[in-house]
Design a protein around this nucleic acid. Structure first.
Lengths: 210, 210
DNA sequence: GTAAAAATTGACCGGTTGGTAAAGATTACA
DNA sequence: TGTAATCTTTACCAACCGGTCAATTTTTAC
């Protein structure tokens, strides 16, 4: 076969694995900052330190790169929600969830923005992934409903509770430019994060305890 | 003068005013759904029911259209925050603010998404507008600080409180696709809005009362 | 060492996009 | 009604963009 389209059936060489990672890292940077449409293959190739045809030797299309990133991200993105333990103490489980989500916004802002970009544009490329997300949420909502029934947490709408946790935590990644513009040089990065964590704890704990 | 570039010095004819509005409405639709980079002049012209060169007779560039929209939006966007009354009752002022912001997310989702798009991409075209925003926030934060000092509301970080209100309300416009995917056909539009309003009231009132 | 496989590159292509030129159609107004 | 200003359209351009091709260089396997 004359054209062994790199990422075909099975991983092959050392170089392939390395370069594919380099490309994905570069693409994450570019997609997060410019969106899918705004990103060009040339930009990604530049960021990855290779030529455009060379990049296209490893991934067949721009969309293929995006697809891999989205799949990876959504998976790790939902880990904190999966980690909520039915047998744990409700309020401390929720507190941990918020803290984990906030840590992800701090540590993986590009992943958050890439995802936000996709949703904002109407999620044209991730319909089925959204279905997986719905299934997981539905499952966890049942847990919250049980806790509410048992009087272990306040009687609120669990769907909207999840939305509000997503919104408040991801805000610090997705709207970082705005947050920085408003806070100015008031606080350094880490202090800012701790302020946010403390505030969200206060808000949600007293908002959700029975 | 042979080329009276429509929107030049002063508004002129009836047709100019009408067409400019049609274009802005069309551009809002397209920018909100595709972002600045993703939107094409052809798309906007189509949506506005005119040819591309005709559109460019009224606005010199794509960026000029975007600029006008952003300016208009930011202005109305901040109205609810401006409306917070120092002499009012703190918790009811905040409740009204949340309700107004949620109504805007419901009634002007395209405006919200256009703005979100801009921030997500690093706000390249609206640096000075961000400064205005900071000034207004700083001003209102002083009001909250006073209320806290007077023991009329809980001692939380007012900046992060504002962020959390922005995040939770705008979430329903910006991440609408996700919200709909998760909620499925569970509720119609208006019921959904009322559920969100009730939940946010519960969350913020008990989270913020002294 | 050598030859085949894998990796890289420059040159290129067709379609799209932001924007222009210039001529024709319409409107406002004397 | 005539005409000047305004409005609209057709044809077009140069830059960009996603992707291909063929040829060259590098790596791997023996």
């Amino acid at each position: 076969m004359t054209l062994p389209r790199a990422a075909q059936t099975k991983r092959r060489t050392r170089i392939q694995e390395e370069k594919e990672e380099v490309i994905l890292e570069a693409a994450l940077e570019v997609f997060a900052n410019h969106g899918f449409r705004g990103a060009t293959i040339d930009q990604i190739a530049d960021q990855a330190g290779m030529s455009k045809p060379n990049l296209l030797y490893y991934f067949p299309t721009k969309e293929a790169i995006h697809r891999v990133l989205i799949d990876r991200i959504l998976d790790t993105w939902l880990d904190p929600l999966r980690a909520i333990d039915e047998t744990g103490e409700p309020l401390s489980e929720i507190k941990s969830y918020i803290r984990r989500k906030l840590e992800m916004a701090r540590d993986f802002p590009r992943e958050s923005r890439l995802f936000a970009n996709e949703i904002l544009q109407g999620a044209p490329r991730i319909q089925e992934e959204l279905q997986d997300l719905k299934n997981l949420v539905d499952e966890k909502v049942k847990v919250f409903a049980k806790w509410i029934e048992q009087g272990k947490m306040r009687n609120i709408d669990p769907y909207h509770m999840i939305f509000s946790i997503w919104a408040t935590t991801q805000h610090y990644a997705d709207f970082d430019v705005q947050v920085q513009a408003v806070l100015g040089s008031r606080k350094s990065g880490e202090g800012r994060f701790e302020d946010a964590a403390r505030y969200l704890d206060q808000l949600f704990v007293s908002g959700l305890k029975p």
